[in-house]
């Protein structure tokens, strides 16, 4: 019978939560609650709300663009930083550690302004590019800590075994350490992804037409500030709720695999 449960996993069968909190879980209340409010507003008062909603898809697209581009570069930067943080080379280690310290000590909004205007002194890049650079720079440091923890969670005998076979340090990392570390890394990366998506709302200050910016544009023309921000809050909430559900499903699956 053991064999059967193994087949179930490879078939990708739904894996039940260990403890189902039932109908009244916080997530369900928040998700279905906000969905109901959204539906109610659109149906009962289509005049401002449907108009607002029609105005926003461009902004949602930009928010996702900034999020995906930033997470891509942040992951790349984070991998380098994480490896740098555990490097025995003192110079590399110092650079990586200083980067993390500096980024963690400066508010993201200040970093955004700083990189935007510092960059502007040398090159003229589109606002959205400056925004992605700034977000990546900041989140690269956080990701660096995630990668470092993930790599350090792997027994050091693994690196020794790989090296003893003749793999060089980066081959060992790529073929042996990282494929094992991703299980530890993936859930916190998911959470950082959600945090990053929310933080992209800050780029609206840099004239990037993201969800929040589009809302402000609409509101300032029609003076429907309350209605617009209500809708924007609901949209952010629904997106992050869906994403956090995906992350927790992923975590649950990883835990399931680990037990088997």
């Amino acid at each position: 019978m053991k064999e059967k449960s193994v087949i179930n996993i490879t078939d990708g069968a739904a894996i039940p939560l260990k403890k189902d909190p039932g109908l009244f879980s916080a997530w369900r209340i928040a998700f279905f609650g906000s969905l109901s409010v959204l539906a109610y507003l659109l149906l009962s008062r289509p005049k401002p709300y449907v108009d607002i909603l029609k105005f926003l898809p461009d902004g949602i697209l930009v928010t996702f663009q900034v999020t995906f581009c930033s997470i891509f570069f942040a992951l790349f930067l984070g991998l380098i930083t994480g490896i740098g943080r555990i490097s025995r080379n003192r110079l590399i280690n110092a650079i990586a550690s200083t980067y993390v310290e500096v980024v963690r000590g400066i508010p993201l909004l200040v970093q955004l302004f700083y990189i935007y205007y510092a960059l502007g002194r040398f090159v003229r890049v589109p606002d959205i590019v400056a925004a992605v650079i700034a977000m990546s720079f900041c989140y690269g440091a956080y990701m660096g800590e995630v990668f470092r923890a993930g790599i350090e969670s792997i027994d050091k005998g693994q690196m020794e075994a790989a090296r003893s076979l003749g793999f060089n340090p980066s081959q060992s990392m790529f073929y042996v350490i990282l494929p094992q570390a991703w299980r530890t890394i993936l859930p916190p990366v998911g959470n950082e992804f959600i945090a990053l998506l929310k933080d992209t709302s800050l780029v609206s200050i840099l004239a990037v037409a993201d969800l929040l910016r589009r809302g402000r544009e609409f509101a300032s023309e029609t003076f429907t500030y309350f209605e617009t921000y209500t809708l924007i809050a609901l949209i952010y909430l629904l997106i992050t709720l869906i994403l956090s559900k995906l992350v927790s499903i992923m975590e649950e699956r990883l835990r399931y695999y680990e037990r088997h």
Binding site: E160, A161, A162, R163, G166
Partner: peptide, 18 residues
Amino acid sequence: NKIRMEVGMVFQSFNLFP
């Protein structure tokens, strides 16, 4: 790394790739 390819090593704690 070239030299290590010619020298096999077996560890107390096996260190197989899980």
